[in-house]
Every structure is written in C-alpha cells, then in structure tokens.
Amino acid sequence: MCGRLAVTLPDDAMAQLFDAQPGNDLPEVPNHNVCPTTRVHVIWNQGANRRLGAMRWGFIPYWYKAANDGPLLINARAETIADKPAFKAACRTRRCLIPASGFYEWTKDAEGGRDPWYIHARDQSTLAFAGIWQDWTLAGETTRSCAIVTTGANAAISQIHHRMPVIIAPQDWALWLGEQGKGAATLMRAAPEQALGFYRVDRTVNSNRATGADLIKPLSC
C-alpha cells in the first residue's frame, strides 16, 4: 500500500535528475501531503525522450464510464499486475516513474488511533516509484492517470505495513521506462532494508487537508 506522498524537489531539479523535458502543467511543490486523485509528478518515455508531466494519481481503466465508476486504483500489486485486466497492457508498454521525497504509512495504537510514519531514503535522495499510466477519454476529454506498483515489504518496513512501493534505483530507470529492452519485471521487488529510514510524525497528516513542512518533522516524544 502507498496512499500518501511528500514531494519537495523543485521542478527544474527534478527534470535535471531524471534527464526529462518538463511540461508546463506540473503540480505545485513543495507538497508534503500529496493525496490520491490529485495530480502527481510523473516521468515517462515519449519516443526517444523522457517527459516530466502531471497525471492523476488513481488509474482509470478504459471501460470506466466515470472516473469514480469503480474502485480507486492508486496501487497495482507487482504479483498480479501482468494478469489484471486493468493493468496488464500498461505494465507492458506504459511504465513510468513517480518521484517522491518520502511516503507515509500508519500503525494503530492500543485504542485504535492511527499513528503516521514518514518513510524516506536514508541518504535523503529522491525516491523513484515504479508506476504505470493510462489515458482515459470521456466526451472528448482525456485524463492521463497513473498507479504506483507495490510489493511485499522488506523486514524493516513490515514493522509498519506489509506492503511498500517498488522503488527503482537510478541505474534501472532506463530499463523500467522501456529504454533498454525487456527485463523490467525483475525490478518489481522490495528495496534493501538499509536503503530506507522511517520515523513517527504528528497525527496532523492524518487529514488530507493538512499542509506544510511540519508534517514530516520527527515526532517529539
């Protein structure tokens, strides 16, 4: 599961990092509380070039009669992505990278309260989540949407949640984007335990309306 992100890298730095041509419709950054159905930064391959643009976070299958015509598909399970009717074409030909500074997961306390955790790269680098995308058209208007690919969590992250995003290492970006032939399926695995760090943050982030850099500050005990 991955249901909330933080993105703090400026657009020009993001374009340079991924060697991508930026669009003019990019979401505002920094955003420490990126939520499903909003627009997210996405890198995909367009011909011989990489593009950096915005897509709706929430994959819309082509048969949906409305964007909310079925389940909200923000994640696609690596174990079944090649077989699911909603995802199987996209995982072959429409793979993308979804950059983030970190993401949130939740545990429950003894009273059932939801305690948020912020998960990030230990070296503070930008994470690149494996994603898939799809164009969906209704009444002549096209929405480009995406989902984050998830897999079973590594031992460290499983203390918080049993699933985690598939994180693509820089040396594998080209393979995931389809620039280096076949073999992308081998990348759909959990990141090494030592790659990620995590800490508790304030419950303020439990609201999808919360904003600001304080959302990713370590909780003071």
Rank of each mutant, 00 (worst) to 15 (best):
G3E: 01
G3K: 00
L5T: 01
L5C: 03
A6D: 04
V7E: 09
D11A: 14
D12P: 01
D12G: 04
A13F: 09
A13S: 11
Q16P: 03
L17Y: 03
F18D: 04
Q21G: 08
Q21C: 11
Q21S: 14
Q21V: 14
N24E: 12
N24T: 10
E28S: 11
V29G: 06
C35N: 13
P36T: 00
T37L: 08
T38F: 03
R39Y: 14
V42I: 11
W44T: 02
Q46S: 15
R50E: 02
L52P: 05
W57E: 00
F59G: 10
I60N: 01
Y62V: 07
W63V: 04
Y64G: 07
K65M: 05
A67H: 07
N68F: 07
N68L: 03
N68H: 09
D69W: 00
D69T: 03
G70T: 01
L73M: 13
I74M: 11
N75K: 03
A76E: 05
A76T: 04
I81N: 04
D83F: 06
A86E: 08
A90F: 02
C91E: 12
C91M: 15
C91L: 12
R95E: 09
P99L: 02
A100F: 03
A100W: 01
Y104Q: 02
W106C: 06
T107A: 13
K108C: 02
K108Q: 11
D109E: 08
A110W: 00
A110R: 07
G112Q: 05
R122L: 13
R122V: 14
D123Q: 01
D123A: 03
Q124A: 11
T126C: 12
F129G: 15
F129D: 15
I132N: 07
W133S: 14
Q134D: 13
L138F: 15
A139N: 14
G140K: 12
E141H: 13
S145V: 08
A147Q: 13
A147E: 13
T151P: 11
T151R: 10
G152C: 12
N154M: 05
S158P: 10
Q159F: 05
I160M: 07
H161F: 06
H162W: 14
H162V: 09
R163N: 05
V166G: 08
V166S: 10
I167W: 00
I168V: 06
A169G: 07
P170M: 06
Q171I: 00
Q171K: 06
D172K: 11
D172H: 15
L177E: 13
L177Q: 11
G178E: 11
T186L: 08
R189Y: 04
A190K: 06
A191F: 08
P192F: 14
G197Q: 06
R200Y: 03
V201E: 01
V205C: 14
N206D: 11
S207W: 09
A210Y: 10
G212R: 02
A213N: 10
A213M: 05
D214E: 15
K217F: 12
S220V: 13
C221M: 09
